[in-house]
Every structure is written in structure tokens, then in C-alpha cells.
Write a protein that binds this DNA or RNA. Structure first.
Lengths: 188, 188
DNA sequence: GTCTATAGATAGATAGAC
DNA sequence: GTCTATCTATCTATAGAC
């Protein structure tokens, strides 16, 4: 029951935007980006399309905005892995990716597998940069082709989890299981 | 330069259909199912939409027809793994899945990750049946939750490979690398 | 087996009132 | 910040001629 800091607005600044992005992200992971219309986003929010266009100039802008928090977390993971030994850096990156995959389940999966999203991200330097940094941390210097293959496999595995229904078991257990699976996949 | 067995038709029976499915499959893996219109399929074939509708009654029918050869291969894999020890059966299933993922790269990836395709397959018993059989071969009886988690991870990894550009290296090497990665992921 | 033509719905996007 | 109304383009799908 905290009073909003300084404003009296019924819908606090940026909250409409946040709600919109949440709805859009959910729909993207359920139906894909191409399969999600601005109308369906508006419907889920109980507003009209025009209200959506008031906050974003285009659908692409929404797609990128949905991806942005994940990109920010990728940056934090890459930052955290810097300055450690190869082995420690890899463990930190794996742990961060697993945590990210579990926290932003749907969005992480969409980013990895949706063609529309992938095309947008392919020309989005901030994303490419963080991916490159994390891959470097996972692969180490002069990686063998077997090692790069293992990373492609593991990357697909970890980020594909959003497609799964339950992923039963307590968070700690799932987290540990995924870290173990990913570490095994990359230990070569 | 072999004479078509008994017919004189310029386009042998079913070849139009096969070409259509090839074009559709390529477009699905490039742009997703929702992102691919019947018009774009027709364009790639150099015909009109009406010609496409002559061969298939609906888009869903095309989607399922694209998936069908992969489902058939899944059946063969499941069949091949029957009647061996748990360990041997698992090795056979892994080898078959890797071969399938490499041979039907794009389609296998689409089937695993495209929301439209996934929804269709979710109510397509022939697919569900083969997936269940293969999962059983990979998991063995009474699998632990850690083991099921590892399978989800590995399944995503192997089928996500279609999204990758080159997958450099000779086929034998890539095949062996993927079998190794998958075996490591499932060895728990 | 391929075409033209078109129906009917929906897509992304914009203008302007409140 | 949300609305009504509308634009244009495209979508899936069908009818019927060649």
C-alpha cells in the first residue's frame, strides 16, 4: 500500500507500456510474432489498436522492446564472466544463462526460435554483441569445431525450454539439473 | 534419361505436389508457418494461389503434409530401437535422431519450434505416438525427473540445429559430434 | 492443372476527436 | 491515453472459365 512517489496518475508512468510488453511477450511465445496481431495484443489489454499505437510506432518496435530486458540480462551475464579463469568464467556464464532461461522463459525461447524475432535481432548490434561475448566465455580461445558444435547444441537446448509446459520440480532442482546438463554438453 | 514408366504426362504424377511441399517447407523454415502466405508459396513455384489450392484444400493440409516425411522417419527410428537392451536402444534412437535432424534440417526445426506447426502436431496422433515411443527408448523405465529434464534439453538442442547457418565440417564429423553431445547430455 | 476474378476477413498503420 | 473511423494491402479461400 505504498503511495506512488510523487505523481497522482491512476496508471503510473510507464506501467501501461510495461503491461503492453508483458501481454505482447506472452502472445509472442504462444503464437509466434507473425502469428500475433496488434489487434490481439489490444484485445488482451482490453483496449483498441490505436491505444497500442500510441505507445509504439510499429510492431517491430514492440518486438524489440520485448527482447530488450533479456538483452540487458545477457549483458550482465557477459559482464559477470569477465576477469575470471576460463573455467570459472564458463561456470558463471552457464549459471547465468540457466537463470535467465528460467526467469524469462517464454521470451528467451521466442528470441532463439522465432524467425521474425531472429531476423530483427540479427541486425540489432546490442544483441549480437552480448551473444558474442557470452559465446567467447563459453568457448574459450581457439575453440575446436567439435566444441562449437556442442555450444550450438547446448544453446538450442537451454533456450528451447520455454516451449515446454511444466518443467516440473522445485526451482532449485530444475536449475541444478540444467546447469549439469549444460556443463556436460560443453565438457569436451 | 529414363522414360516415365507408363504415363506420358509432362509433369509426372505427384511431382507438382512434391515440388510444392519442398517450396513450402523451405519457406516455413525461413519465415515460420504464420509468416508464410500461400501467395509466397505460389510465387516461388511460379504459379498462382489457385494452383496451390488445386493440390491442397487448406494451408493446414500443407503444413501437415510437410511434416509427414519426418513423422515417417520418426516411426522408423522408433521401430529400429525396439527389441534391444536399454543401452543399445538408446544409442540407436540417438543415432537416428541425429541423422534425421541433419537430413531434414529445416523441417525438423520447424516442427519443434514453430507455434502453428506445434499446435497442429499436438492434435495429430501419428506424431504424438512416435514421439512417445522415442522418448521411452531414450528415457528407459521410470525415469527420474533429472533425466526427463536432460531429455527436454537434448531434444531442444538437436532439433534447434536447423536454425543454424553452416554447421561447418564434413557430415561424418558433424554427425559424430552431435551423437557425442546428445549422449553426454543424456548420460546421467 | 492452371488461370482470372473475387469474396470476406484481417493485417499494419494513420487521422483526428475527446 | 483512449477512442471511432478509415486507409491500403494482404490474407485464406472459392467459383468458374480454359
Amino acid at each position: 500500500m505504498v503511495t506512488q512517489s510523487a505523481t497522482r496518475s491512476r496508471t503510473p508512468r510507464g506501467q501501461g507500456r510495461a503491461k503492453l510488453l508483458e501481454a505482447a511477450g506472452d502472445l509472442f511465445s504462444e503464437q509466434g510474432v507473425s502469428g500475433t496481431s496488434l489487434q490481439s495484443i489490444a484485445d488482451r489489454l482490453g483496449v483498441t489498436k490505436a491505444a497500442v499505437y500510441h505507445q509504439f510506432a510499429s510492431k517491430d518496435e514492440i518486438v524489440l522492446a520485448v527482447a530488450e530486458p533479456v538483452i540487458e540480462r545477457l549483458r550482465q551475464i557477459a559482464d559477470a564472466a569477465v576477469g575470471y579463469s576460463e573455467e570459472e568464467g564458463r561456470a558463471i556464464a552457464i549459471d547465468g544463462l540457466v537463470e535467465l532461461a528460467l526467469a524469462e522463459r517464454g521470451t528467451a525461447a521466442v528470441m532463439r526460435r522465432d524467425p521474425t524475432m531472429a531476423q530483427l535481432l540479427d541486425s540489432h548490434p546490442p544483441y549480437l554483441e552480448q551473444i558474442a561475448r557470452i559465446e567467447a566465455a563459453l568457448l574459450g580461445p581457439r575453440p575446436s569445431s567439435a566444441r562449437r558444435l556442442a555450444l550450438a547444441f547446448a544453446g538450442g537446448g537451454i533456450m528451447a525450454l520455454g516451449a515446454l509446459p511444466g518443467l516440473d520440480g522445485p526451482h532449485e532442482e530444475v536449475h541444478a539439473g540444467l546447469v549439469a546438463a549444460m556443463t556436460r554438453a560443453l565438457t569436451i
